[in-house]
Write a protein that binds this DNA or RNA. Structure first.
Lengths: 199, 199
DNA sequence: GTCTATACCAGGATAGAC
DNA sequence: GTCTATCCTGGTATAGAC
């Protein structure tokens, strides 16, 4: 792996573990096994490096979400697959956690990837829900956009509760609670399948 | 206000704005209008002061929650009142945000108030929901504990989404999405009121 | 109780040699 | 490309005078 690569990967790890304010150029260099001059040769400084790291992490999150949400199965099934997907819960969300960082929020360039990631995710889940309503799998009264935001929030908040508790349990419980509420909005079985809505 | 008081209040503000790693004793002193020696006279150091600040903030959160959850009205009504209560959304949750702080998580004494706060809150909401089920206001199939965790997670995650977006809108949307799902679990109207369950 | 002095190390970055 | 030297500021704390 190139030095530049190692610097980016080290930064990704440190941002996840300690956030932006908690991560120093020194620590990045040590972890990457790179010298001072090396880092400043490849990157303009801490924030430049952070931008590269955050962008990559955001892309990864998006790809992982799309793998489940764009997979096979009904709407509820795909959403459940995404919510229940294996996660390192106690480490928190590598994208969401940056939201708490004052220096990230203050830098337009660093905040933008966060905005785009969650904007995309909320819309993507809303689309899956809308599809479920359309096909008759879900109740017509369900609001796709609002429900999608609630589901994404459950994940992000689940991390918070888990870290506060020191165990993964609250995360799993919150996810199951949300899926329980969602399942109750499934339209009565044996009813209109795709394209079979009543006239 | 005494110097000690001002130090605690300044620390509360800074922890909320910048987190623990982002808050220096210097900054606290400046904001409190206190000198170096003054701070170390009243408190053993940064973490000692933070403990006082966090404890107070946690107590406040709890009192504010209890004011709504222990108020008048049905279960869903009280929960809606709590979720919709006026908040400074873009500032985030002063307790939840500390969950992202590596130095807080690493210090047992600092993490405990977070654990207790969210543990209490989840239980308190679960109790309200259980009451709703008991009285027939809510569907018997609803899991109070899981649903409560989901609702608390929606709040915590709502802050994350709002900060990422740079507007309060996603928070409000997530809350309404969650309340929409919950409302659909209300047992059919005109049915058993308190103590009037079927035999 | 509060102030100033002092200490020491880390943060973040630049300069110039190799 | 990478290394070392250097810079200046701030973080966190102690010591001792007032």
């Amino acid at each position: 792996m190139s030095t530049s690569e190692r610097l980016i990967e080290s930064t990704r790890e440190l941002l996840w573990e300690r956030g932006y304010v908690g991560t120093s150029p020194r620590a990045i260099q040590r972890r990457a096994g790179a010298g001072q001059g090396s880092m400043y040769h490849h990157f303009a400084g801490k924030s430049d490096l952070a931008l590269a790291a955050i962008t990559r992490t955001a892309e990864e999150l998006r790809a992982q979400a799309e793998a489940r949400l764009g997979g096979p199965g009904g709407a509820v099934e795909r959403i459940a697959a995404y919510l229940r997907r294996e996660r390192e819960v106690l480490r928190g969300c590598p994208v969401g956690r940056l939201t708490q960082d004052p220096d990230v929020m203050a830098d337009e360039a660093l905040r933008r990837p966060l905005e785009e990631t969650f904007g995309w995710l909320r819309e993507r889940i809303a689309a899956v829900l809308a599809e479920g309503v359309e096909s008759g799998e879900l109740d017509r009264g369900l609001d796709p956009a609002a429900t999608a935001s609630a589901l994404v929030a459950v994940l992000q908040g689940g991390y918070v509760l888990a870290r506060a508790a020191g165990t993964e349990e609250p995360f799993a419980e919150a996810v199951e609670g949300a899926l329980g509420l969602l399942a109750a909005r499934a339209a009565p079985a044996g009813r209109p399948g795709p394209g079979a809505g009543r006239p």
